[in-house]
Design a protein around this nucleic acid. Structure first.
Length: 267
DNA sequence: ATGTCAGAAATCTTCTGA
């Protein structure tokens, strides 16, 4: 099963890109973040036409919004809330291929966390860390190590020195602070998750999935961050067959500021 | 401090979030 995750920054602005990705890479499942559309306005017919007959959406007006597009039937769709608050940041579904074992797939959009790198004075950063800890509690309580679970999404954290273009400069930037990295490690331990991309690409090699719009010119492998991730539960660790970042997509116009991550799992 | 996007609400621009 091929699973792709992409912060699309408005699904309605980038339908053509989804078509190109579907054509070129044939993912079975696409997890989207920042769809920026209410469920009632989600372009279901356009997506279905691309081969994804099964669609689960969790919109939140003009902000946030996550979705799962699947070629295979889905059941048990859950739009997750945090502290009884709808926020369009976590949707899950069990993808059940006709020939193959079912997988619980999660599309997550972790809050960015604002500017000041101190949760004691920055409420957005405190909310981000709380969101991650709530999510860790959820996974620890809901699943066991033998379950087949895939966590995807824009986690807004680059955990390794090689996940940012300048480790030293970024240590005081939200997304690469010690607070971020410790929180992401708590999430990783919640189900003993494996970072699928780093199983395939050596941890010392720079890998980026996000490049700011606020650069005069986007250049591959310059000034990026690896904010988008696909993790698998222990039950799927031995099934990781391939992993890559579709860096070229960042050059397609009009671009999202994120590139998709694609992981292939053997049955 | 700056750069650029996207969407909403209300105008033809400003705000918010990232």
């Amino acid at each position: 099963m091929r699973i792709l995750s992409w912060n699309i920054n408005s699904v309605r602005k980038r339908l053509e890109h989804v078509a190109r990705i579907a054509e070129a890479h044939a993912p079975d499942v696409i997890c989207l973040q920042e769809t920026k559309v209410n469920d009632a306005d989600f372009p279901l017919a356009d997506i279905a036409r691309l081969g994804f007959a099964h669609i689960a959406t969790y919109g939140f007006g003009g902000y946030n919004g996550v979705a799962i597009l699947s070629r295979h039937p889905m059941r048990d769709v859950v739009r997750h809330t945090r502290r009884l608050k709808n926020d369009g940041r976590h949707i899950s579904a069990v993808v059940a291929p006709a020939n193959g074992e079912a997988v619980s797939v999660h599309s997550l959009y972790v809050p960015a966390g604002g500017e000041a790198p101190d949760p004691r004075i920055n409420d957005k950063f405190a909310d981000k860390l709380k969101f991650i800890d709530d999510t860790a509690d959820y996974f620890a309580g809901e699943f066991g190590f033998r379950d087949r679970v895939v966590l995807t999404g824009d986690l807004n954290i680059a955990p390794l020195p090689s996940d940012v273009w300048d480790h030293h400069k970024m240590q005081k930037r939200i997304g690469h602070t010690d607070y971020d990295i410790a929180a992401l490690d708590r999430l990783r331990r919640s189900l003993n998750w494996t970072d699928a991309v780093r199983e395939i690409i050596p941890p010392d090699d720079p890998v980026f999935t996000w490049w700011s719009y606020r650069q005069s010119e986007f250049k591959v492998d310059s000034k990026g961050w690896r904010l988008d991730h696909i993790w698998v539960s222990p039950g799927l660790k031995d099934h990781i067959a391939s992993a890559e970042v579709l860096v070229d997509v960042r050059n397609w116009t009009p671009p999202s500021d994120h590139a998709p991550v694609l992981v292939g799992l053997s049955s």
